[in-house]
Computed example of a mutant assay.
Amino acid sequence: MEQPLIAGGGWTTAWRERRVGTGRLLAAHIVYRHPGDLSRTTELAVAEVARTLAEDPDDLVRSHRAWWHRYYQRSLLSVPDKRLQHFYWIQLYKAACATRADGPSMSEWGPWYPETGGSWTAVWWNLNVQIATWLIQGSNHLELDSVTSTFRDFEKNLPLSVPPEYQDGDTYALAHPSDWLLRPGAKTVGIPGTSTKTDNNGNLIWAMHNIWLSYRHTMDIRIVRDVLYPILAKAVNFYDHFLYEGGDGKLHLPLTRSPEWADAEDCTYDLSLLRWGCATLLDCLRILRTDHPAPGAGARSWTAWWPTPAMPPGS
Rank of each mutant, 00 (worst) to 15 (best):
H292L: 07
D168N: 06
G21Q: 11
H241W: 11
K187I: 09
C284T: 02
P312S: 03
T22D: 13
T148V: 01
M208L: 10
E165Y: 11
D56E: 14
H64N: 07
L253V: 01
K250H: 11
D56I: 04
L135F: 13
T280D: 08
W206D: 03
W89L: 13
R216C: 06
M1A: 14
D263L: 07
M208R: 04
M219Y: 14
Y229N: 09
D59L: 13
P293D: 14
R83G: 09
G249A: 08
P192K: 01
L255S: 04
Q130G: 03
A175W: 00
A14W: 07
E265G: 05
T256P: 00
L204F: 07
I6Y: 14
R152C: 00
F151A: 00
Y32I: 02
I6N: 13
G8E: 08
T148N: 08
G185D: 08
P104C: 05
H252P: 05
G249H: 12
V162N: 03
D270L: 01
M208C: 15
F87W: 10
A95H: 00
W11P: 00
W125E: 03
N201D: 15
P4H: 11
N210M: 07
L84G: 09
R152K: 12
H34K: 11
G10V: 01
V31D: 04
A45N: 08
V147K: 00
D153T: 07
T52S: 12
I136M: 06
S107F: 08
L26A: 08
C278S: 13
L135S: 05
E55T: 06
W89D: 14
E43Y: 10
T22Y: 11
Y215C: 00
T280M: 12
P177Q: 01
R62Q: 13
S119N: 14
A173I: 08
R216A: 15
S107H: 02
P307C: 10
T268D: 11
G118I: 06
A66C: 09
N128Q: 13
E2Y: 08
S195H: 05
G169K: 06
S315D: 07
H217K: 04
R33G: 12
I287V: 05
H64F: 12
L271S: 03
A297I: 02
K82M: 04
G138M: 06
Y244P: 02
F151L: 08
D283M: 15
D291F: 04
D220I: 00
H69T: 10
L38G: 02
Y72A: 04
V129K: 05
H141T: 00
R19V: 15
T99R: 09
P295L: 03
M1F: 11
Q130P: 00
E55K: 15
V236I: 15
E108Q: 09
K250G: 04
G314P: 09
H34M: 03
Q167P: 06
L77V: 10
E43W: 07
L232G: 03
S161Q: 02
L26W: 12
Y172G: 00
E155I: 02
Y113I: 04
